[in-house]
Design a protein around this nucleic acid. Structure first.
Lengths: 331, 331
DNA sequence: TTGTATGCGTTATCAA
DNA sequence: TTGATAACGCATACAA
């Protein structure tokens, strides 16, 4: 049998209430009984059952993180950051993966608070409707978004406009004038990076040209190879590519360039986005835009804690992080 | 206020016990009250509170996964596999990361069951002492190990001897006779892969040579570069390298070869281990040993479920998975 | 300073 | 087939 608060009480000769007060170190317990109880706790190897605790005080001490997959660089790094700060608290992490099934998404999120499984929720790159968020709010369960923005709750994200601008500006300063852009088909991130690209062109008096844009869908290696071919067909004069779709795709571009006898960076400069591990190992190594993802995850956790503790309000607020240009040999 | 079982009972005009029976679809409830209760549940948007449930039936419906870090390919893929099968159950995943702090490891594991936080535990690549395992057993909390082996609980792992053998054998069949080995300093995996290497040499009548072995510690890119230099110094005649330390290190070897003007596979054949994403993208692409990690994670979860449900015994058993040789251009 | 009583939401046992 | 009651482990208001 498990040792409970009652067993301790019996052993010491006090009531469970007294033991409970000792555990929560109430002030109004005599030093002597405190010591006696503590000794018994140690001797009997007692650990409070967190379920019993949860039931009475309504807290689970769990933080839920919801994402479609945790096997992506972004989600994983976010979790790492969350973990890092969670460590100093007595909260635990529960991971909920929707596994890309949109139909289950809402249900999963809803159950999360109706069943009282977590005291707060961090949602990574997932959309939520206003009605659902309102329910969370009503139930007093704080929500923090990573990447997505929804009226009514704080968001932690990156300055994608700035990232797009930095990369484009760097290419321009390196005397490139015909800058191709490989970028995702849709989404806030893609839109923002695109805006940064256009802003930079504009600021330096370079006209925007539809024929220098290639849209991709899956952000993989093959798309990089294909995109460079497409780009060169549409605009044979490009002297550089900003691959806002990410480093994996950018590496596909590097590969395709090599196969076509195009010299990087001589004939074609390439900039990626993400700074994945391997970007330092390609030849030439890849100049890219790095985002401090783990750091941002930590911040998301801190904001959530602030909301749980009540000193950060449950309302719209965007906290944004600066991207960083990592200069290597591909430009 | 939250909707509880009592509210439903009051609304329908029955007792909470009846409602509970409906929820757990007991056979001995009339179809009529069943329907009435169901209707009320839907109308009032009732969801059972899992904490209340846990308290009475002693189940948490949580599965804990413990690892030192989740930001490694191995841990991450394992979690993916666990997640995949967990999806069809009503269990949740709780992740516990020791963050490499050995001193907290035991404490963390211990609290896991004393505080009744999970119904079962999967331990990834982490050692546990027998005494602790005995405590888990006493408390009736099943434990499944991934990679590590400990008397008294099942382990899910890969056939590393076979992996080592396959790689070495392939090199031999490709007419390589002076096969260098880059491998971790210690641990069961390293020992087993080493055995596979020696077994293969032995079977083909090639003498084992200490001077062809290089030990590494961190499995990173730089160690790969350094190891190749070391190896060539100790044994200038090596015509191939089996980098059992993993693909990241193997890519370091490729890079160092390129810098030294050594042709791969002409002058030097290279085989890695892991089949990380990028191994297909290097030039030449890397021949390597792949392990179906996610698949193994799924299996670990299934074993744990079997133990929880009582039809798999709580005892030593090793379930091993076959590695696969992925043939590319570096041999 | 400590004990008594009560309740958190649910399920299980027994009686009706 | 359903109701009454107790129990899970803990924390708190109130009484002593």
């Amino acid at each position: 049998m498990r040792v409970t608060i009652k067993d301790i009480a019996k052993k010491v000769g006090v009531t469970p209430a007294t033991v409970s007060m000792v555990i929560n170190n109430s002030q109004k317990i005599s030093q002597k009984t405190k010591e006696l109880v503590m000794a018994a706790i140690k001797e009997m190897n007692y650990h409070p059952n967190y379920i019993g605790r949860s039931l009475v005080n309504g807290k689970t001490n769990n933080i839920a993180v919801v994402a479609s997959f945790f096997a992506s660089l972004f989600a994983l790094e976010s979790v790492r950051g969350i973990e890092a700060n969670l460590r100093n608290t007595n909260y635990n992490l529960i991971l909920y993966s929707t596994r890309g099934m949109e139909e289950n998404e809402r249900d999963m999120l809803q159950r999360l608070f109706y069943e009282r499984r977590a005291d707060g929720i961090i949602v990574i790159s997932l959309r939520m409707d206003k009605e659902l968020l309102a329910e969370f709010k009503k139930e007093g369960v704080p929500v923090v978004f990573i990447e997505e923005v929804l009226e009514g709750a704080p968001t932690v994200k990156f300055k994608n406009i700035k990232g797009g601008y930095m990369a484009t500006e760097y290419l321009i300063k390196k005397k490139r004038k015909n800058i191709g852009l490989i970028i995702g088909e849709s989404g806030l991130n893609a839109d923002e990076r695109m805006k940064g690209y256009r802003d930079a062109l504009n600021d330096f008096g370079i006209p925007y040209d539809e024929n220098k844009i290639v849209r991709v869908k899956n952000y993989n290696f093959e798309e990089g190879e294909k995109s460079l071919k497409t780009l060169l067909k549409k605009s044979p004069n490009v002297d550089s590519v900003f691959c806002a779709a990410g480093d994996v795709t950018a590496i596909g571009v590097l590969d395709q360039a090599k196969d076509s006898g195009i010299k990087v960076p001589g004939d074609l400069a390439v900039i990626g986005y993400d700074d994945i591990y391997i970007s330092n190992l390609t030849s030439p190594s890849l100049t890219t835009v790095r985002q401090p993802i783990a750091h941002m995850g930590s911040q998301a956790f801190d904001v959530l804690m602030g909301m749980i503790d009540g000193f950060i309000p449950y309302e719209s607020k965007i906290i944004s992080f600066e991207p960083e240009l990592i200069i290597r040999d591909s430009v």
